[in-house]
């Protein structure tokens, strides 16, 4: 489901390229991968959504759970390369008020 491009501990960003839709059927795999990464010490995690077409409420819940876990250890979660539809979903659910969410082609600050 995901391809870890870079892996490190502490504040070095770990970029996960999500390769499947983040929906009820598929979100467990990414949840487990994030749990493992955070357990290994990753604190800045970036989810690359360049190949994600759909996110449902289970996927949103998984993202919030990862965000909550990282916040507890003073880390951050960001989502990049979002399609216009997913960006609209995140904004309508106010997800963008809690983490960096950027559109496809936009470099995260």
């Amino acid at each position: 489901m995901t391809n870890v491009q870079t892996q490190n501990v502490d504040k070095t960003p770990v970029i996960l390229k999500v390769e499947r839709d983040l929906v009820s059927s598929h979100s467990a795999e990414l949840r487990e991968q994030l749990r493992t990464l955070i357990g290994q010490g990753a604190r800045n995690v970036v989810l690359d959504f360049g190949q994600v077409r759909m996110v449902d409420s289970a996927g949103l819940g998984m993202i919030i759970a990862a965000h909550n876990s990282l916040k507890k250890v003073e880390g951050e979660l960001a989502v990049t390369e979002c399609s216009a539809d997913i960006l609209e979903l995140f904004r309508s659910m106010r997800i963008h008020q809690h983490m960096s969410v950027t559109a496809a082609g936009v470099v995260s600050a």
Binding site: D56, S57, L60, G61, A65, N68, M93, R94
Partner: peptide, 15 residues
């Protein structure tokens, strides 16, 4: 709640 990990299905219906 903002940090709730479930319950957004209803919000999706509404929106």
């Amino acid at each position: 709640e903002a940090t709730a990990t479930s319950g957004r299905g209803v919000s999706i219906y509404k929106n």
